[in-house]
Every structure is written in structure tokens, then in C-alpha cells.
């Protein structure tokens, strides 16, 4: 049994090299600085700024998924990926659905 386990954990060891963590770190920094610069210097109109903010956030999320959370690992089928995708879908439903429904339900504020 011990053999069995360390066999599995050897497989897990493959992921994550110093290189991938450093690249992920640098990419994250860049993707943080871009929206900060755009917003704090008032560089774009409202819609443009929002797009930059959301796109860089989404990209940084993907960077962290790949470089920090090693989502490419673990054998098929990738239960964590499927659950994540479904979770993101529900997240969008909750946020966008609430915004849409509450547009018609505004109170005096």
C-alpha cells in the first residue's frame, strides 16, 4: 500500500517547477498592473475600462489556474475541471440573473 501511494504522489510531483511558478507570478503582476494603470490614469471610457478590468482579471484567473493550481494535472476525466466549468456557469447565472431581475426591482435609495 505504501508503494501504491508513493507511486501516486510521484505522479503528482511532476507538476510545478520553479520556472512555472515564477512565470505565473510575473504574468499575474503584469495582469494586475495593466488595469491599475488604465483605471488610475483614466485612460479609457467607461465601457473600455470595464472590459480591460474584466479581461485582465479573467486572464489572471486562468494564469493562476494553470501555473499555480496545476489544473492540467490529474488524469482524465478531469472532475475538477468539469466542476469548475459548471461552477463558473452557475456563478454567471447568479450574478447576471440577479442583476437582470433586480433591474426591475429597484427601491428608493
Amino acid at each position: 500500500m505504501a508503494e501504491h501511494n508513493s507511486h501516486d504522489s510521484h505522479a503528482h510531483e511532476q507538476h510545478g517547477s520553479l520556472k512555472s511558478y515564477v512565470i505565473g507570478f510575473i504574468l499575474s503582476i503584469v495582469l494586475t498592473i495593466i488595469p491599475l494603470v488604465v483605471v488610475l490614469n483614466d485612460m479609457m471610457g467607461r465601457t473600455g475600462t470595464m472590459v480591460v478590468i474584466l479581461v485582465t482579471a479573467a486572464l489572471q484567473f486562468v494564469v493562476q489556474l494553470f501555473f499555480f493550481m496545476h489544473i492540467r494535472e490529474t488524469g482524465k476525466p478531469r472532475w475538477n475541471v468539469m466542476a469548475l466549468i459548471f461552477g463558473l456557469l452557475i456563478m454567471m447565472t447568479i450574478v447576471i440573473g440577479s442583476i437582470w431581475i433586480m433591474l426591475n426591482n429597484v427601491v428608493a435609495h
Binding site: 488595469p35 483614466d42 467607461r46 470595464m50 478590468i53 485582465t56 493562476q64 499555480f68 493550481m69
Partner: peptide, 20 residues
């Protein structure tokens, strides 16, 4: 790592969209 990802969205939606 998950908590850092959440923070990315907090930064974006609460703070950046707050001051833009």
C-alpha cells in the same frame, strides 16, 4: 491560491470599478 483568485475579482469589481 483560491483566495488570491477571489481577491483578483474583489480588486476588479469592488475597487477598480469603484474608483473608475
Amino acid at each position: 491560491h483560491f483566495l488570491d483568485v477571489v481577491w483578483i475579482f474583489l480588486l476588479s469589481i469592488v475597487y477598480l470599478m469603484g474608483v473608475m
